[in-house]
């Protein structure tokens, strides 16, 4: 009776503690674990500490606190753990927040370099499009959303003023704000749509064979298996399988257990 009570009390306590822990506490715990990993006596101990740190950071993310720095940190930790799949996934996500973050780019390059397979990067977008839509490619998603919101708010405010008086300069300014807002809103919407329908995913299993259908019984889709770190695009899910586009624009099915999404 006493034992059962103690277990129940402990479980309740842990639940309450985990529920009560806020993102700041998780971050604090994660940093402490990282510090411990640095001063660990052995490599195995460091791996354990880093795993704890990853859990804490994932908990922060699970609570809705997402930003580029967090993804970058997770990517770096996974990379230290040699989990190339999750490392590349998180680093690629971090780049969506800050496309020109040097630290993230360096770590991503390192992670890609450590992959067993080397793929030729295919540039889907031409330089002219990138130059014209520089705001889409060079500005992080949160900044684009903030700019869209700010210009939209300004546009609406000017619109309210225009209900009373309509000087030309006010109308011009309102039109400009509206255009800028439309551009950034469209850009952000495109990013959202892409992430929803062309999800970033990376092979996390050491080795996996892509199939022609959603099952192991289907014939292999490629002449060689894929290894951890292979970047794919997930188009849809069916059960435990995901329909993906492999590098080289090869359509295939992969088991979601082998994928980090």
């Amino acid at each position: 009776m006493n034992k059962n009570f103690f277990i129940a009390f402990s479980a309740l306590f842990l639940v309450l503690v985990s529920l009560s822990a806020n993102p700041a506490e998780h971050l604090d715990n994660a940093l402490k674990a990282e510090q411990s990993a640095l001063s660990a006596a052995s490599a195995d101990e460091a791996v354990q500490y880093r795993a704890t740190a990853i859990q804490e950071y994932e908990a922060v993310r699970g609570e809705g606190l997402t930003n580029g720095a967090l993804y970058g940190k997770l990517g770096a930790l996974y990379l230290q753990q040699n989990d190339l799949g999750h490392a590349i996934l998180n680093l690629k996500k971090a780049l969506l927040f800050a496309p020109h973050d040097r630290v993230v780019k360096a770590n991503l390059a390192l992670a890609r370099n450590r992959r067993m397979d080397h793929f030729v990067e295919e540039e889907n977008t031409t330089g002219a499009v990138k130059a014209l839509a520089f705001f889409h490619y060079d500005i992080g998603y949160p900044t684009r959303v903030n700019l869209a919101l700010a210009t939209w708010l300004l546009f609406a405010s000017l619109g309210i003023l225009l209900l009373w008086k309509r000087p030309l300069w006010l109308a011009t300014l309102a039109v400009l704000c509206g255009l800028v807002s439309a551009l950034f809103t469209t850009s952000a919407a495109i990013t959202l749509y892409t992430q929803k329908h062309n999800k970033i995913a990376v092979v996390s299993a050491p080795e996996t064979m892509p199939r022609k259908g959603d099952g192991e019984a289907y014939t292999p889709a490629t002449n060689a298996p894929l290894h951890a770190g292979t970047e794919v695009t997930v188009k849809r899910h069916r059960g435990d399988w995901a329909y993906v586009i492999l590098p080289g624009n090869i359509p295939a099915w992969l088991n979601t257990n082998d994928l980090a999404e």
Partner: peptide, 26 residues
């Protein structure tokens, strides 16, 4: 060769808009 790190707690604690559907979005 090695993992580059910047431990900026303020940046990690900042709430931003996320483009990923599986994030608990606002």
């Amino acid at each position: 060769e090695g993992v580059l790190e910047i431990n900026d707690l303020d940046d990690m604690a900042r709430k931003t808009w996320s483009p990923f559907p599986d994030d608990q979005q606002r």
